[in-house]
């Protein structure tokens, strides 16, 4: 009803801008550093190549990120495998962490 639209808040595009920026900024911080971070895009590509040998590939299935926890840097690799045909429930995901100096 038109009259209710008057009271509804307009869609806040600024919120969308913020959400998109948070993602892109985090990704770029991880990939433009001059140390260990620099190989992350390459690592991601190579992992995808290996997985492609065994599983149907989706570009989004491998994510690589570098986090700082205290003194240690944590390299987090997330591989999401596609749903198995039998169980239609949920995706399986496995995390692998390793620290680098």
């Amino acid at each position: 009803m038109a009259i209710f639209d008057l009271f509804r808040r307009k869609t806040a595009s600024a919120q969308l801008a913020k959400d998109r920026l948070q993602i892109v900024v985090a990704r770029e911080r991880a990939s433009t550093g001059d140390r260990v971070q620099s190989y992350l895009p390459q690592l991601q590509r190579e992992l995808l190549e290996v997985i492609a040998k065994y599983e149907k590939l989706d570009l989004e299935m491998v994510s690589v990120a570098l986090d700082k926890k205290g003194d240690a840097e944590v390299l987090e690799i997330n591989i999401v495998l596609p749903e198995s045909p039998k169980k239609g429930s949920s995706v399986r995901s496995r995390g692998l962490s390793l620290s680098t100096g």
């Binding site: 808040r9 869609t11 806040a12 600024a14 801008a17 913020k18 920026l21 948070q22």
Partner: peptide, 16 residues
């Protein structure tokens, strides 16, 4: 425009 949600607020930019 920031109050109307059309523009990033100062706090948003600071946080980012």
């Amino acid at each position: 425009r920031a109050a109307a949600g059309e523009m990033l607020k100062v706090d948003d930019v600071l946080e980012l």
